[in-house]
Design a protein around this nucleic acid. Structure first.
Lengths: 203, 203
DNA sequence: ACAAGAAGTGAATCCTGATTCACTCCTTGG
DNA sequence: CCAAGGAGTGAATCAGGATTCACTTCTTGT
């Protein structure tokens, strides 16, 4: 045996892999899944098609990873906002939505891809996980609010799911007024009002 | 000239066309767009593939029609419920949601396909129209409510969009508790509570 | 019964990408 | 410098469906 990958080589490998993932995310952010063919990723990343397959067994696997990283990032941001906010449940949820909304406004395409654009089953599984995280985060805060007496009793899961739907539709859905350049600040304010009322708090 | 289609022939033509559309809708209701290949539609409808193309220039056109009919039907049902309900805006919206929710529970697959499953652009245009109709219906009622002093002033469009999102997610989305057999009645009640609060009415 | 004009048929073709793999190029340890 | 063990390459292959079209089978009016 005369060849065994050394640390330097490993690093180069990892770098290439990373570049592929990053490129894939960029392409999705620009044109959604349709624009993210393996050939396109390879070209933009400066490698051959075969190289992509040396790092990922299939397209699904590559995109599952892209998805996982990107969504984790989003959820972390929202969680951080929620946890950094003191006060009653309504305020904490408002803070979370605010962060979500602003992040979604930059990078609509990517946000939409993460939240709603259809993909193959393997990637869909990642999305489900992602949505669950969002919902659980909301549900947790609402539960606390109910216990503290800030919010009326309610089906926490259902409320949380409905909140996710409302947020997604308002910011990213086909009905979203953000599509036609209306004032984003006003939209965010409306959304927060809506959600605040919806959980049972007077705005 | 020795042949000109007669009334009887026309009728047979129309019947075949109708059968194709109906079959396509059934297939979507059973397995979504993936299950609705032209070949499958043709076979189930008892015609040859070529015949489908004699009636519709392309797959998109066929499904756009399926879509248009089905969604019109849904919106009509909701509109009817809203218009048949007297009283304050909150009650009317609750009635609309109730109808939507119950219809969605039967035929989840079709409802999801209509509302959210990804499709090609031509069909997507129909969906947009469909969602707009829903939103406008909600928006109209909310506006009336505000004018009548039943509801607080708010961005009507944004509220309506958020409602659609909340309803869709709750009843059909991947987070929907309906997926795992929880009590549908309770879910509908929660949803209506949520929406009622969200538009600014005490439940 | 016949010819013209349509409608029906489905095997063959096309298209769009994902996936493979025989071959070339590097790295490494001896 | 050499041979072994990977890593990189991209043209060729596959696959899944939509779409076509040369040919067959009705229908109708004379």
């Amino acid at each position: 045996m005369a060849y065994r990958t050394t640390e330097r080589t490993e690093a180069k490998l990892a770098e290439t892999r990373e570049r592929i993932v990053t490129t894939a995310r960029e392409l999705i952010a620009e044109g959604g899944y349709v624009a993210a063919q393996i050939a396109a990723v390879a070209e933009r990343a400066g490698v051959a098609v075969g190289t992509v397959y040396r790092h990922f067994p299939s397209k699904s696997d590559l995109f599952a990873e892209v998805f996982r990283e990107a969504s984790q990032h989003e959820v972390d941001a929202m969680r951080e906002a929620v946890e950094a906010t003191p006060g009653p449940a309504a305020d904490r949820i408002a803070a979370g939505i605010d962060v979500f909304a602003r992040r979604a406004l930059r990078g609509r395409r990517l946000a939409w891809a993460l939240l709603a654009e259809p993909v193959d089953p393997a990637v869909e599984a990642e999305r489900l996980h992602f949505r669950h995280s969002y919902r659980d985060l909301m549900a947790e805060v609402i539960s606390d609010g109910i216990e503290a007496g800030d919010l009326p009793p309610q089906d926490v899961e259902a409320t949380a799911a409905a909140l996710i739907g409302a947020i997604g539709e308002t910011m990213l859905g086909p009905l979203s007024p953000t599509a036609n350049g209306s004032d984003p600040e006003a939209l965010i304010a409306s959304l927060i009002n809506f959600c605040t009322r919806a959980i049972g708090e007077e705005p």
